[in-house]
Structure formats: structure tokens, C-alpha cells
Design a protein around this nucleic acid. Sequence first.
DNA 1: AGCAATTTTGCAAGCGTTTGCAATAAAAAC
DNA 2: GTTTTTATTGCAAACGCTTGCAAAATTGCT
Lengths: 346, 346
Amino acid sequence: MSEINTSVTILDVAREAGVSYSTVSRVLSGYNYVKDSTRERVLEAVERLGYVVNQQARSLAGGKSGVIGLLVPGLDNGYIGEIARGIDEELTKSSYDLLLYTTHRTSTEASYALKMTKGLADGVLLVVPLLTTGYIETLREQNFPYVLIDQVDPNNRSSVVDSLNRQGAYEATQYLLGLGHRRIGFITGLMKLRSAEERLAGHMAALRDAGVSVEEDLIQTGDFWRREGYEAAERLLNLHNPPTAIFASNDLSAFGVMEAVRAYGLQVPHDISVIGFDDIPQASLVYPRLTTVRQPLDEMGRIAARLLIEQIENPDRPIRHVTLPTSLVIRESCQSPQQSWLDLRR
Amino acid sequence: MSEINTSVTILDVAREAGVSYSTVSRVLSGYNYVKDSTRERVLEAVERLGYVVNQQARSLAGGKSGVIGLLVPGLDNGYIGEIARGIDEELTKSSYDLLLYTTHRTSTEASYALKMTKGLADGVLLVVPLLTTGYIETLREQNFPYVLIDQVDPNNRSSVVDSLNRQGAYEATQYLLGLGHRRIGFITGLMKLRSAEERLAGHMAALRDAGVSVEEDLIQTGDFWRREGYEAAERLLNLHNPPTAIFASNDLSAFGVMEAVRAYGLQVPHDISVIGFDDIPQASLVYPRLTTVRQPLDEMGRIAARLLIEQIENPDRPIRHVTLPTSLVIRESCQSPQQSWLDLRR
DNA sequence: AGCAATTTTGCAAGCGTTTGCAATAAAAAC
DNA sequence: GTTTTTATTGCAAACGCTTGCAAAATTGCT
């Protein structure tokens, strides 16, 4: 690193070390059949010249780019951030670089797939809630390594990392029931996503198993965003007979719920208990701190990255489906139902 | 996109269209001297074959990769997320891709610089609080396009996008003074960063201009992280004569402050007012919602990206320094000092 | 010392583009 | 109808590296 060099190539190093350029290449890519003394000489030359490999050329010639693509819907979401953090941590260990794509970029998601398969990345990690199936198909047909995160392949032919959504929701509802709640409002996620479906299913199952009848009004449609969480909560609060607890399908919408509750002059958890799903970092930041179902998002990212790398380095590895457990994180946003504010209101 | 092709190259397209491969290349890179009818024929062939350009090859040959590097300290921080979002939005428009590097990866930051200059990226955006100067120097010496975000070049020879830290802090303190506070605790940021310095300076200036004497105990050292915020707040609360308001150098530490205040059985803002800096998304999520100095983080990212692209496309553009205004966002975490809880305690 | 086996090295042929230069075709000017 | 000028196209040479193949050097055995 002593020189200001615009372009030291492998040839320069070869000359400096007095060997052929292919030998340099072999030293650099960790080939075994190189005499130790030669290797040393080359390494010294590399150091002296401040040589740095040109990735583009390397991947053009070698077919590997050392880059992994990450396709996400956007960055405005603690959820994605956590997953990305896990991925990044894992990639660091393996010295892969991370190429970030956000799908809001264009509507033609499929074009990304192609672009990535064309040399830019060696594999791709998909956190794309609104994944079109065709997209996955393209990837699979081209036999391009990829792993889905928190998203299922309808055909079950992809490697996937997700978590026990259904069970997590089941436990959350069970917890509320255990506190004595009987009228529990539920705000769904974006129902075209499997995770949203499963959370709803878990909730319903818990009610059913507890012999609590399901009231249709108590299930409100949301979309995993805060705003809808707010509005769905309003609808619940406006009910003739409002719930004593609200279970939002993710933390973000739970925040919206808390806001709505507050806007109605009520207190969490005193008047209404609120529970979320995900446990994004903000969950412990809000006040009262949110009780929620923890998905190990960073861990999911880490595992997905690991799976992908394995698949890249060993192409005929069979696909895998890893499902991580969720866990209930009890904080301060839930308590047993008090004398109803509704009663006071009367 | 009709074919399942593992490797349609420009040659295949050329054959299909009945032209030479260089003509195809020219059509694809938007060269002007191509007959319309030819262009059309080529485009059709591209479509028919599902051809996608190979970026690696393109950049090897053409020297441009269409990728911009983003170097950040980590992802665990709403602050970075906002900046990244702005950058991403801007890059989308220009069809650049984003390569993400986190510095926690290795301690040898400088090696990234080199790696990026070697073909992987056309330019780099740096949000690296702990920037070593040598790093910047390397980039500049190689004449590699880069822009610093919220970080100054001690030598003033880099393009920079930052915000009016000093003034923002000045206004925040002024606001607290205006509410009637006289004993204001201040928690610094990581003092080796310019922004931390400037915020402190702004605070002091406001006090001085208002004729309020500065008490050394009221200035506590922090590091921009929540934990230190908590601990610094504890130190302030333990003072013989505690402050009635606390100004934390960023939102994250303000959250720590709020937590500490609560741990002491006190209420924000009733017993103690808290004000932050940054206005990260979480600021409006906490309760009470945090009054803070807004830095237009996404806008900073956007502008930095724009500056960088301009520099890439026009290398001898002079460096620029853009400083964005901050603004006070008044929410609910501050109010006039009440009868002191201290008094009650006596 | 002689020969086979094994380790090291070098050469050359790509990898899929871009681009300068030269050739050809078309249009304009004389 | 020529000669210029301008618009189109093609060829070939990079870009910096990896890797198969073969030659050279070294080592181990007999």
C-alpha cells in the first residue's frame, strides 16, 4: 500500500516477483501446488505494489463474483433492518459482499432476477413479500442459487427460512386469554402473505381451543403497516362492544394501535392490552414497552445467508426449509382486563 | 424472456439480428449513429432471446460498473437506515446499484477503499463516523469519486453533505431556555466526531447568549448510543442539584435518558424535559413522543448520491460542500419546569 | 544412476463487453 | 455525374483475470 497506483495488475506483480502471471493468480486464489518460497515472493510483491484484485475481471474469467444480492421491498422498516443485519454478519465471515436491491425500484421485479443471474451476484436472498411466483420460477429454472426469507414458495421447491408464525400467534392469544381477556381484537397482516394467514390461523386456533367464540367484528384487516394498524384499531374501538385487548399481526401495526388507543384517551395497558409480533428493536423503545412475539429476525438472516453460501459452493445440495421458533416476549403492554372503560363510559 | 437461457451473449443477439456484435453493443449503450431500422431489429432480437447484459464484462471493458458503494458503520441504527433510504431512492432514478459495506467487517477500513476503487464500484458514499484520514487520502489520491455524509474532511478537500449541527443545537437549547429551564443537562456525542463537537458548541453558545452560566457537572460525556445516554442521565439525576431538562446529542441517547428518568420514578416531561437530535423514525414512536432537532437524513442521502453521480459522470467537477438546515420538531417530551420534584423530595 | 511419480510453473485460450479505427453506404453539394 | 460530407457498420484489440494442458523441476525408489 505504499504506492499510488492507478492500475497494478497481476502482470506487474508477476514481473516484480519474477514468476509467471498464472502463478500469481494461483497464489492469490489459494491454489495448493505452489512452492512456499514462490508464494512468499509473490505475496511480498503484492504488498510492495499495493496490488488489489479486480473483482470484475476475476468474475468474468472465473464465473464467481463474490457478491450476494439481497432483494428487499424497502428499507423503511425495522423488520428488514434486522434481517439485513444478520445477513451482513454472516457474509462478513465468508468475505462475500452484499449488493442491495429494493423492489420499489421498478415494477418489473423479474428483471432483477435476470440481472443478478447475469454475473452480478453469485446468489440471491429474497425478502420480497410481494413476490410473484414467476420470479422464483425464473431463478429456479436457471438453476441460480437463492433462498427465501420469511416467505414461502407455493410450490415448495425453494430453500426457505421462516419462523413458526402460527404457533407464535397461538401463544400470544393464549397469553391474552390467560390474563382473562375474552374479547380480543385481531388486526391481520397483508393477507396475501402466508405469514399473515398463519398468524390469523394461530389466533383463531387458540380461541377455538379455549372455547372462546369468534366474533367477526373483532377481526379487522390490516396490511402490516402502522397506518392501517391505527385505522383498524379505530374500527375496533368504535365497536358497540369493544375488545379489552388487541393483537396486531406485527409490531408496526401494534404501534399504530397504541397511538389510536391513546388518541381515544385510553391507556395501554390499563384500558386496553396490546400485543404485537416480530419484536423489532423499536418494540422495547415504545412506552409502555410492547409485549410481542419475537421472531429471531437477525438469526433468520444469518441462517439464510449460510444456506445460500452452501448452495453456491455446492450447487447440487438439496433445498432446505428451516423454520425457527418464536418466543413470547412479555413486557408492559398487556395486563388483565380491568373494570371496563366502557362501563365507565356508560 | 421467453427462453430459458443460461448465457445469451451479445454475439447471439448479433446473429439473430443479422448485424455485427459491435452494432448490438452500440444499440445497447444508446449510441446515436445507428439506423433506426437496425436498432429496432436488434431490440427485437434482444427481446426474443431474453438477453441481459453482463455487467462484469461491461465494466471490465468499459471501465464503469454501474455500482455505487456505501460504507457504513453498521445497520443497527435508525440513523443509517434513513440515510440509506435517501440514497437508494436517488440511485433508483439513475439505475445505479448499491453495494453495501459495513465497517465492522474488519478493522482495516482502508482495504475497502482500495477494493472499491478496483472496479467494483464507480464511486463511494461514506458514512463512517470513525473515519481515519488516511482512508480519505487514499481515495482522493486515486482520484476516485466519493462523498462524505455527515462527516467532515479535516483537510476540506472532499465533497461533503452535512447539516447545521451547531445551529440546531443552539435552537434546541434556546427552546428549553424559552420554556423556562435554567439548569439544562447536556449529554455529548462521541467527541471525536465533529458533529458531536458542534452540537456541544451550539448548546454552550445558546447558554452564553442567554446569560446562563455553564455548570460543568451538567455536561456529561456520551457516545451517541443509548446505553451511554442512560448512564449519563443517571449521573445527571444523581447530582446534588439535578437539571430540569436534558438535551441529548442524538435521539438514541435521548431514549436512554427517557428510560433512566422513568427508572428513577420520574415522568417525562412533567418532572424532566428531554430533547434529542436527529429525528429518526423512532422519535415519534416513543412515548411521550420525542421533541428533537430534525436532520433531514434521507435528504442528505439523496443529495450525497446526486453529488456522487455528478462527480462520476463529470470527473473534474469541483468538490462541493452542502450543508442542510435542521429544524426543531416540537412534540411532547418538553414542557416548562414544574415545581421541582427535587423540592418534593426534600 | 535411472526411471516413475509428483510437484511447480508457464503458455494460451478464453470470459462478454466496449471502443478506436477503417471501411462502406447514403445524402448533400458542386 | 462527381466529389464531399455525414451517417452506419464491422473488425480487432483490449479490459484483468482464471484455468486446462503440457513442459520443467523435484523427489522418491530401486
